[in-house]
Computed example of a mutant assay.
Amino acid sequence: MTSTTTRPNKMTDEASSPPGAPPRLRRRPAVVAAGAMVALASAGGLGWAFSAADDAVEVVVAAQDVGRGEVIEAEDLTTARITLDPALAQIPAARAGELVGQRASTPLTAGSLVTDAMLIPEALPGDGMSLLPVTVPAERADGLDLQPGDRVKVVLTPPPGQPVEGNPPFSAAEVATVAPSADTVSTVVTLLVPEEDGPVLAARLASGNFYLVLDSRER
Rank of each mutant, 00 (worst) to 15 (best):
L131Y: 01
S112V: 09
A104R: 00
P133S: 09
T135E: 02
L131M: 08
V136Q: 02
M129N: 03
E98N: 09
G101A: 10
A141P: 01
L119M: 05
L108S: 13
P107F: 01
E98M: 08
D116S: 14
L119I: 13
R140E: 15
P125E: 12
M129A: 11
P125Q: 14
P107W: 03
E122T: 07
D142P: 02
A117G: 13
G111Q: 03
V100W: 04
S105C: 11
M129Y: 05
T109P: 08
P133L: 05
A141S: 09
G126K: 10
D116E: 15
T106N: 02
A123F: 01
M118L: 09
P133E: 05
M129G: 01
S130W: 05
T106G: 00
R140V: 00
G143M: 09
L124I: 08
D145I: 00
E98R: 06
Q102G: 05
V136W: 03
A104V: 13
G111F: 03
A110P: 11
L113R: 01
T106V: 13
T135K: 00
L108T: 03
M129K: 12
P121M: 00
L108A: 09
A110R: 13
S130G: 06
T106M: 05
M118I: 00
V134H: 10
R140T: 00
I120Y: 07
G101K: 07
D142K: 06
M129F: 05
L144S: 13
M118T: 02
R140K: 15
S112E: 14
G97T: 11
L113S: 02
P121S: 08
V114M: 03
L99S: 10
L108G: 12
G126D: 11
L132P: 09
P107G: 06
V136Y: 04
V136G: 05
L108R: 14
T135V: 13
I120N: 04
T135R: 04
M118N: 15
L144R: 15
G126N: 10
P133W: 06
S112G: 12
P133N: 09
V134P: 05
L113F: 03
V100M: 06
M118P: 12
S112D: 14
Q102I: 06
A104H: 00
A138M: 08
G101V: 12
G111Y: 03
S105Y: 03
M129V: 03
E122F: 05
G111C: 07
P133F: 05
P121E: 10
